[in-house]
Design a protein around this nucleic acid. Structure first.
Lengths: 348, 348
DNA sequence: CTGGGTTGGTGTAACGATGCACTGACTCTA
DNA sequence: TAGAGTCAGTGCATCGTTACACCAACCCAG
């Protein structure tokens, strides 16, 4: 390897290592221009790059942040991870990516490992109602940002949450279907009890009630506990749901709100299995507006999350809290989702 | 933070730090059982975890490996990244994930950074014909594994390549369409000159010629250099291609081989824009067999890559070369792709 | 009962960067 | 010109772990 160290630079520039270190750490006001130039030249000539391990050992923290998503195999999380990387790069930070598969134990292990690895902060994409599984790490000083999970009453005070307003999202989706004349609207999700699932469901109920309909009359499909599907298999949830809701003799809906686009696409696939036509026979709306929503046949109506903006916010909080202007901790940012109407929803 | 160090453990176990270190590094044969147990107990009681930065500073390398993909926003790469993580975890390794967006300069910067970060090895998903942009790092000792890019004549000797046989893949896809009776078969890809694009195209030509047809008579769409699309926008390439190939007066094909599934799905979308029906009016086949291929309407015929197996192989080479039995470097592994027939391809 | 070998450890100097406390040389001001 | 103050830069201990070189105690053959 023959690493170039700060000592080599110091020797080449005829100064002490301390001075080079001062230069590297933006304390160059404390030296004359000529010295600064000598150091700059030496660094360039030798191709010096600071050793991160040494820096981290000294400083305690590294220039890396952690990102824990359910699974990058799911296009929504893949797209989000990409946005996070872009934002982190702008702040001079690397991203360590982990897939939790929504397993609380894996979430905990990853968060612990990342913390021990000396990351600056962690964006945790979880939907667990409680954060107690990572509570001890937060107590030790970890900057945790939750994404896709609004703040909950029992959260540790320092946690920042970035999320869309899922309640509003649920309402937007449902209202759209109501406006198209649907009155039998199903709600389809996986079996995992998640914060945002609850909120979207509540929004769905609110919209129905506002229209004078009772949620109790609606078919709600929430998978079975026996078979837990991960995010990659979200589509399978939707497909199964379609088969169930439209089996013979069932009280079939004319429209469906799916918990996310993958589930929605799976539901569409399920409808097709049964010879039903999406949009014509049954309207389907999803969440997230993944890239495939627009590609699908028919293109899928969806509730869009502004992931680029959310990623920027989340990264800023994770690596440098307070950079957003306000530096009170424990903030919960709820962004407004946006309805994107395509052809999978049509008037009844 | 109040870190527990190896010194604390040593004190608690009434041994020297060296002995604890020996224990931690599997040199426990050199100590009596009672000592071993005291150390084990002390570690457990204090909740000691070794400091990675210090270890890395001492040893030079860390327990992390790098993965550079074009973009996790593309479902194929997302799925692959997930498989890599699973495989790495089994080997006790973390994964540092980067998106190159197929930009050679970003590839180089990431590889350099990862190397300086002390990763054990890197899986680089590139399709550039030459590896000279990262050649200097390889010379310094980096273990590089390329994925989705078979070995090229000028590659440094130590590089290992894991890939499917794209030539065979191109043949399989094309033969399938020929068997269905198609004789006007287009080839659609982006404009990026890549190794596997060439190989797939060659396979396509080979299959046509074997059937007595001339590739010169076929419409080949390779985007325009003016607009370079990344992997996320692969779908846009396909959509544009459909619009072009089926514009009025064009010599339209009855079947299409697309360079990958995202492009294929985009192509399907383009056909739909034009009022054409996938499978019925035009048969479409893609590559990769991403999860959405099966979900699409109609389900997409595709050439599957065994990504799970490939990920395992690649990780093994990156973190512990020679673990696969053979320890000669510079190997090129070509796996056989598999045709998955669905409804997007039908007889003419 | 000496001398060589084995067993079960320990002391210590790194790895590379950092930042506090310090100094020597100047420059003012009174 | 003494004394204080600034400027530009340096020395050194430190972060936690590792591995080499070393050592003390014991055993046994000759």
């Amino acid at each position: 390897m023959a690493r170039v160290t700060i000592q080599d630079v110091a020797r080449a520039a005829e100064v002490s290592p301390s001075t080079v270190s001062n230069f590297l750490n933006n304390r160059s006001e404390r030296m004359v221009a000529a010295t600064r130039e000598r150091i700059e030249r030496a660094i360039a000539e030798l191709g010096y790059r600071p050793n991160r391990a040494a820096r981290q050992l000294r400083n305690g923290r590294s220039q890396t942040m952690g990102l824990v998503v359910p699974s990058v195999g799911n296009p929504f999380w893949g797209a989000f991870a990409r946005e996070v990387e872009v934002a982190a790069l702008e702040m001079g930070c690397n991203v360590l990516l982990c897939n939790s598969e929504r397993d609380p134990d894996r979430e905990r292990r990853y968060v612990e490992e990342l913390w021990e690895d000396g990351v600056r902060g962690i964006i945790l994409c979880t939907s667990l109602p409680s954060l107690e599984h990572v509570g001890h790490v937060i107590k030790e000083g970890l900057r945790l940002v939750t994404f896709d999970r609004p703040a909950q009453p029992n959260d540790p005070a320092s946690v920042v949450s970035i999320s869309i307003d899922n309640n509003v999202g649920g309402q937007i989706a449902t209202s759209h279907l109501l406006e198209l004349g649907h009155t039998k609207i199903a709600f389809v999700s996986g079996s995992i009890r998640s914060v945002n699932r609850s909120a979207r469901y509540r929004g769905y109920c609110d919209a129905l009630e506002a229209a004078g309909l009772s949620p109790d009359d609606m078919p709600v499909w929430a998978g079975t506990d026996a078979t837990r599907f991960g995010d990659v298999e979200a589509a399978q949830v939707g497909r199964n749901a379609a088969h169930e809701l439209f089996r013979e003799g069932a009280d079939a809906p004319t429209a469906v709100v799916a918990i996310n686009d993958m589930t929605a696409l799976g539901f569409c696939r399920g409808l097709r299995d049964l010879g039903l036509e999406v949009g014509v026979d049954v309207s389907v709306i999803g969440f997230d507006d993944i890239i495939l929503a627009d590609l699908y046949d028919p293109p899928l109506t969806s509730v869009r999350q502004p992931i680029s903006q959310m990623a920027k916010l989340a990264v800023a909080e994770a690596v440098d809290p307070g950079a957003n202007g306000s530096n009170e901790p424990g903030r919960s940012v709820l962004l407004r989702p946006e309805l994107v109407v395509r052809e999978s929803t049509q008037s009844k």
